[in-house]
Simulated assay, not measured.
Amino acid sequence: MTTRVWDYLPEYEKERVDIIDAVETVFESGQLVLGASVSSFESEFAGYHGGGHCTGVDNGTNAVKLGLEALGVGPGDEVITVSNTAAPTVVAIVGAGATPVFVDVQEDDYLMDTDLVAAAITPRTKALLPVHLYGQCVDMAPLRRLAGEHGLSILEDCAQSHGARHHGQLAGTMGDAAAFSFYPTKVLGAYGDGGAVLTRDENIDRALRRLRYYGMETVYYVTALPGHNSRLDEVQAEILRRKLRRLDEYIAGRNEIAERYAEGLADLTGPGGLVLPSVRPENDHVYYVYVVRHPRRDDIIERLQRYDIALNISYRWPVHTMTGFAHLGYATGSLPVTERLADEIFSLPMYPSLPRARQDQVIEALHEVLGSL
């Protein structure tokens, strides 16, 4: 049997009764759209983050897009972010009518190099969009300082960092607003698509609620455009309510697996060897994915297939190298660290219900494969 990078079936087997009850709760409620489950989840998710406002939306991409629009970002504006991210981050920027501007990432933790942001700011810059990638937070203090100096907004991309902390502060509580994805693979994942935007600003929240509902504040009356049909589904919201109560348990499980990987693979590190994740001392990592590096990445992945172990590459193609974004004008070599990482990084299987025997299989197979290179 193949060891997958992610698999929801073991978790579903354990939580099936609660998940089925969540579905029946919605079906028996008499309201299938923007009902009690969505409003309750919004309140509880905001509460998990210490208060403020939460607006549930249909997916993480629209969480970024609507978050930008609620912050006043639109045509003619620039948004500074990274190319080492999932393409939806950048698709959302373009969808809001803005132009993405990329800065490189750091070699050790793969996160935005905040030392490069100041030089990327122009009179057209409207927002900074740090991506808390792989389960670890970007250093936010320099970004908040720059935002204050230049009158910029900050939208945190928290799609991969539910429950992560930076200096003890939760991801999603350090900017003007924060976008979350609840795609099934996420640390807090639904059984389909879903997303949300957090903010402590009541005016931003009001704009978000209008944006997700056609531009309406009351039924059938559009008060302002743009407007979208981007509502979080009631069934997914109720499932997320149940799973939110177990979020800290999921995070603990991921950290336990990460510790076993770190211990079991330590002897494969060193010059020219496997590079394990680097965690900054001020960060609490939630390990959405467990990303390692090796200069012979492709050979390793090919050989591991013989062991029925499936790996993932997050991400093989930096966004600025994709043909869909060629119009942005980034030449090969313009983001050297990002491009080098794309040739070396890969993700090991990581989800809380990953059996210990499968973890051992991954560790043993990597020893055999790297020993044969």
Rank of each mutant, 00 (worst) to 15 (best):
K14S: 03
S161E: 06
H294C: 04
L274A: 03
Y220M: 09
A190W: 09
V91K: 14
G135F: 10
S161G: 06
V279T: 15
I301F: 07
P355K: 02
G253Q: 00
V131L: 03
K14L: 06
L152E: 05
R358A: 15
A365R: 01
Y134L: 13
N229E: 12
P277N: 06
Y8S: 10
R144K: 15
A118G: 10
I204C: 13
R306F: 06
R212T: 14
D104V: 10
T114C: 13
G148Y: 01
L354I: 01
L304I: 06
G324Y: 09
P10G: 06
H53E: 12
E69S: 04
M140A: 06
A190Y: 08
A179F: 08
A63C: 02
K126I: 12
I19E: 07
V5L: 11
G272P: 10
A70C: 07
Y134I: 00
G50D: 02
H53S: 09
G324I: 04
V235C: 08
I239Y: 07
A141F: 07
S29P: 01
A141K: 13
A262V: 04
D21L: 11
R231P: 00
E344P: 02
E238R: 14
S43P: 00
E302G: 00
V33T: 14
M174P: 08
C137E: 11
L155K: 01
A147L: 09
G148K: 08
E149V: 11
S230I: 00
A22K: 02
D157I: 06
I20F: 11
S314C: 00
G195E: 12
A177E: 08
A119G: 08
V33N: 07
Y307I: 00
R356V: 14
G253D: 01
T122C: 12
P277G: 12
G333L: 04
V291K: 04
I239P: 04
D233G: 12
D113K: 11
M174Q: 15
M216T: 12
A190T: 12
R316T: 07
P100I: 13
G253S: 05
Q236G: 15
E234V: 11
M1R: 14
E234I: 07
L304A: 10
R293F: 01
E259Y: 02
D176Q: 05
I300Q: 06
G329P: 03
R303G: 02
V291S: 14
L211A: 03
P100V: 05
N62T: 06
P100K: 04
L146K: 07
S153K: 15
E259D: 13
S334M: 09
H162M: 10
Y220E: 15
R242P: 03
R358N: 15
R144Y: 01
V101S: 04
N255S: 04
L370V: 14
S161I: 12
H320A: 05
T3G: 06
D343N: 09
R4L: 15
G195F: 10
A190V: 06
D193H: 12
T85W: 04
W6F: 15
A98K: 12
A22N: 02
L276W: 05
T323K: 11
C54L: 01
E69T: 08
A266L: 11
E344H: 10
N312E: 05
V64F: 02
S278M: 04
I309H: 04
V369M: 08
V91M: 14
